[in-house]
Amino acid sequence: MSKEKKMYEKVCEYLGCDLDAEPCKELQEHLHKCPQCEVYIDEIKNTVKLYQKADECEETPDSVSKKLFATLNLDNPKQD
């Protein structure tokens, strides 16, 4: 297996995990020596952060909540 392929597998495993989890030692060592990989990982992190910011949760509109409780024939505890 080529060195690049091996590194790919490690980066792949890392990037499919929690982005703030500690990467494996070998990968960390590589990252310290490889600014390009560091940039790549930062860009992935920032892409995720961008989507998270764009997706910040808003409350369900009141009309939607009301209809839901009415359909389920339940009292909405928020309105007690």
Partner: peptide, 30 residues
């Protein structure tokens, strides 16, 4: 596909994408 690691390693670090997180408030951008 797998990321092209050759491409990644050839990239100049100065080419790093910069993100303006405030732009998510813009409807068109979202």
């Amino acid at each position: 596909d797998e990321p092209d690691f050759k491409k990644i390693h050839e990239k100049e670090t100065k080419e790093e994408m910069e993100f303006d997180f405030e732009k998510v408030n813009n409807y068109k951008f979202r």
